[in-house]
């Protein structure tokens, strides 16, 4: 079976962004009802996940792997 894992490069940032996109979309739909509220929550969640992950990665950078 051909999988995405074998076709795409294992781009950690891309996978994380797709994950953040799906999560943000899901919770924006689940937790809000109006269109504007949904868009606002989607942007907040997406940015929190992506920027938060980058911030944690930056903080962890000095530590030995």
């Amino acid at each position: 079976m051909t999988t995405l894992a074998s076709v795409l490069p294992a781009d950690h940032f891309l996978i994380m962004t797709v994950y953040a996109l799906l999560i943000s979309l899901f919770f924006a739909l689940l937790w809000r009802s109006g269109r504007r509220e949904r868009v606002a929550l989607f942007i907040k969640l997406f940015l929190a996940l992506v920027v938060g992950a980058l911030a944690v990665a930056w903080l962890m950078y000095p530590f030995p792997s």
Binding site: T3, A5, I15, L22, F26
Partner: peptide, 20 residues
């Protein structure tokens, strides 16, 4: 709403399978 949820959850599941 049902269609959107179906797409999001199925896509997440299928991506998980595809990532082995």
């Amino acid at each position: 709403t049902a269609l959107i949820y179906a797409v999001i959850v199925s896509a997440t599941f299928l991506l998980g399978l595809s990532f082995e």
